[in-house]
Structure formats: structure tokens, C-alpha cells
Design a protein around this nucleic acid. Sequence first.
DNA 1: AATCAAGCGGAGAACTTCTCTCCGGTTTGA
DNA 2: TCAAACCGGAGAGAAGTTCTCCGCTTGATT
Lengths: 214, 214
Amino acid sequence: MRADAARSRRRILDAARDVFLERGLEAPLDLIVRRAGIGPATLYRRYPDRESLVRDLTGDLLGRLELAAEEAATVDDDAFAAVRRFVHAAADLRMGAVILVLLEGLVVDAELVRIRTATASTVEALIEAAHAAGTLRPDVGMGDLVLLSIRLSRPLPGGLDRLDPDGAVLHHHLDLALDGLTTRAAGDAAPTPRTPLSFEDLITAADRPTVPDR
Amino acid sequence: MRADAARSRRRILDAARDVFLERGLEAPLDLIVRRAGIGPATLYRRYPDRESLVRDLTGDLLGRLELAAEEAATVDDDAFAAVRRFVHAAADLRMGAVILVLLEGLVVDAELVRIRTATASTVEALIEAAHAAGTLRPDVGMGDLVLLSIRLSRPLPGGLDRLDPDGAVLHHHLDLALDGLTTRAAGDAAPTPRTPLSFEDLITAADRPTVPDR
DNA sequence: AATCAAGCGGAGAACTTCTCTCCGGTTTGA
DNA sequence: TCAAACCGGAGAGAAGTTCTCCGCTTGATT
């Protein structure tokens, strides 16, 4: 691939991630084109249809997420710290986009399923270690963690993101929420002992495409 | 106002809240019409332009939020419990919509500013009480609370909300995050002693309308 | 440094979606 | 019962979106 083509691809993927995050998966491709600062033809040449773009984006982000998960597992000794590190990394990647995308039901590609499964099991290991160490609440599963991470890292409406250009507030809030997941925070009173949410729960829930309006 | 007109208004406001939440403030009014199950003329007759609809919706939701804040203040003895109760109520109202709307900069209406200020000071009192009681982390302000509440209560993309039709998971996650805001969760190690975010910070950040793309 | 295949962006045609109004019929309250 | 208020469907006009053609530029290779 030529250098300029690679540059375009990166610009497109970055723009696509942001636009899909802000406007959902049905966002006009035109917006992506404009944000990437390229011509429409450049987008349509590389990605003949929306799905191919989504697929490439998903692969790109999932790959980086997998790296982050492995790094978190090796770098930290403390199990909860590893979970913490991973969640922060996922937020930096705007994991919401990945999950959003890969859960929308378009993804049937074998390669994507492979990397998704691999990432999931790496993360699952992090979580089980934290459970075993007794630092992560037993009623918090990977599904809960992913959901929290999605919710906290999505872009805010109404220009509110201007409040936090470098993500410092986001990471602070992640830390606060993560503190809430410790057994220490749970303390003695466990008001609602829910069952933890698994990753499979998420996949199942998002499996079927949303019904169209009316 | 006639009974059928009032019924239409309620249907419109409920639909508008959901649509604005999902698609942002520039969502096609057509979607609101369809979701409300009314004819287009009914919407346009009552609300000649988008802004009047936004204004009415904001007033409606802010009023209910104010009620919730006052109720939380009177019902609970424990200061932190009052904060907790309020945050849950705000989530049920999908406070994200209110904030989204009222922060978008369209709102200059004196009446709305009045009720916004009133609500803010009621909530501020809740928070100060919890600070005084020593149960709420000192580095958590009303802005942090509002931001967390917005982030956690917004609808999820990709049909993920199907996971949680009655909001049980949402409220569980709210409780987890709230646990993270206690001084107990903070414990000894305070890694990043940030300054708390105020409500004014939010207003200021969202004050100016977002710059158009490019 | 010369060559030329590969890549790029702008203009715009065809199509879809959105906004908003007219009008005949229905519902409500007195 | 009656009049005023309200409702929904159809559809014209405007706006936005998709996608392609084509002449120019960039980059890898020799």
C-alpha cells in the first residue's frame, strides 16, 4: 500500500470512529469524509459499502484493545490494578466504538470473532484474578465492566466534552467508579446482591439488529 | 387546554425526550412525530419551531427534577443517602436529556434560568450536607455528580438497552459508582486529588453552541 | 530524475429524507 | 346538541446524502 493511501486510511478510520461514536452507526458517510478532510471518492474507493468500513474499523480497534489487555496483564502485579489499567486503556481507545460496532450484529467475519474471543478471554483472566485476590466485588463481571466503560467513555452531548479536552476528568471519573467496584467500597451492607453480567450477556443482547421505528 | 390536546402534548414530550437522547438535539422532528404516534400537523401546530419544543421539554423535565431534589432532601436523614436517592431519581428522569438540552445554549428564557438555579441550589445543599457529614469525597462536586449521572443514564447504542428493560442494571451500576464517591472507598491512597467540578463549570463549558463541522 | 500506475479531490446527478401546510373529518366541553 | 378546537393524512418543496466521473497530483521504481 502506498504511503498516501495508508495515510488516508488512518484519517478515515479515526474520523469514522468519532463520527460513529457521536451519531451512531447510521451516520452519514459524508460526515466522515468531511471530518477526515478527504474527498468523497477516496472513501468510496477504499470502502465500497458501509459494512466494509465498519469491518475494517472494528478490526483495527479490536486489535489495539487486545494489545492493551495483554499489556495490562503483564505490567501489573496487583490484580485489581491490572483491571484498572485495562479499563483506562479501553476508555482511551473509546472502546464504546468497538463494542458498539461489534455488537451491532454486522460482524460475522471469522477473523473478527477470533480476535474478539481472544480479547475477551484475556480480559476475563484479569477479572478472575481480581476476584480471586478478593479485591473486586464478586457481583461485578466482565459485562458490568464493559458496560461501565462504554458509558463513561462515550462522547458527551452539547459540547460538554470541551470541559475535558485531555480526558483528565474522564479518567478521574473512571477511577471513582472503579473504586466503587472494590470489595472495600462494598463494605458490610450489600443491598442488592445481583448476579454479575458476563460478556456473553452483552453479545446476546446486542445480537439482533434494532427493530426499525414503528 | 382540552383533554386531547394535553394528551398529545404529553406524548410529544415523552417522544421528544427519547429521540433527543438517542439522536441529539438536531434529530429530525419527523422521528418524534412517528414515535409519538401522532400526525405531523399536531406537532407543528403546538410548536411552530424546534426551539419552542425544546423549551417546553426543558421546563417539563426541570420541574420534575426540582421535585425530585426536594423530595430527596426531606425524605432522607443520612446526607449521603439523600444524594444517592437524588441521583437515582435523576437517572429515572433521564436527566441527560435535561442537561443536554438546557446546556446547549438555546435556553435564555428567564423562567427556565430561574428553575435551573433553584434546582441547582437544592442539589448543592444535598452535596454540602454530605461533604459536611464526611461521607462524600471532598474532591467530588456537583459537576462531577451531574456528569456521572448523565453518562450513566444515557441510552446505549446498538440495542444494548435491551439488556436492561426495567433499568435494574442501570441502578445497580449507579450504586456501584456512588460507592466509589464515598470517603470510605477513597481510603488512604488519594492518587489524584483533583478539584471538584461545579455546576457552573458545566454551564460555562456548554454555553457556546458547538462549532459546525470544519 | 523520469516514468507511470496508483491515488486524490471536486463537481454534480440521482435519490432519499425532512420540513411544513392545507383541508376534510373527529373529538371535546358547555 | 352545537360550535370551537383539535386531529391526521397527503404531498409540495427544500435539504441532505450517496456515489461516480474525470482531470490532476503523489509516490514507488528503475
